[in-house]
Amino acid sequence: MNYRWDWGILLKDPYFSWIASGFGWTCAVAILAWIIALSLGSVIGVMRTLPHPVPRAIGTAYVELFRNIPLLVQLFLWYFVVPEVLPREAGMFLKRGLPMPEFWTAVVCLGFYTGARVAEQVRAGINAIRSGQRQAALAMGLTLTQVYRYVLVPVSYRIIIPPLTSDFLGVFKNSSLALTIGVAELTARSRQIEEYTFQGIEAFATATVLYSVVTFAVMALMHMTEKRTRIPGLISLEAK
């Protein structure tokens, strides 16, 4: 293989600032999308465990819809299709009025998509709690809302910290798809450097290192959180 190595290129302008701003966009998309995913996913996940069939069905439909369409297709639907099928004013706002439409589209799309995954984790977490816990809480006179708020949800979140972490890392990695609609995030920037300089190895290696470092840092943070929130004396929650 003949290849002209030039690691110094990464420190030259504009390439250094490309990488830096790309990393910033990646984090921004991932974190905002995660906030949507966590809130939406918690609601949908809880809905799927309620005794009433209507919210259960809505929850199931949501999860099936967002899990069975490839993320990239969803992104194109949000970006190209949604503005066309909305009423004229709303569509115009999405195309012209909204600042940074690509960025916000990516955030919303990733948030809804990841919300379906979060919902599955929340549902699994709640279902892993013995049914006696729900009965005991109801028997004390708590309303269903209170049962969820004080017993089922706090316990289930502790159980699902590891899978939730991997969903967060998923959103972090999936934010790279935003490049297809023109968000200049980390992967897009490394590709751009490759196209401008032909120093592909250096450019992709930088992105690789950044993604890996974030992953390992988040994993370490998760282990710490898990230890801090561990319930004293409890090894694992029995299945029902």
Binding site: L169, K173, S175, S176, E194, G200, F204, T208, Y211
Partner: peptide, 14 residues
């Protein structure tokens, strides 16, 4: 730990 798109770019290039 890597996004698939980045891996695709890597191999496409490498």
């Amino acid at each position: 730990s890597l996004p698939l798109i980045l891996v695709i770019f890597w191999f496409y290039f490498l």
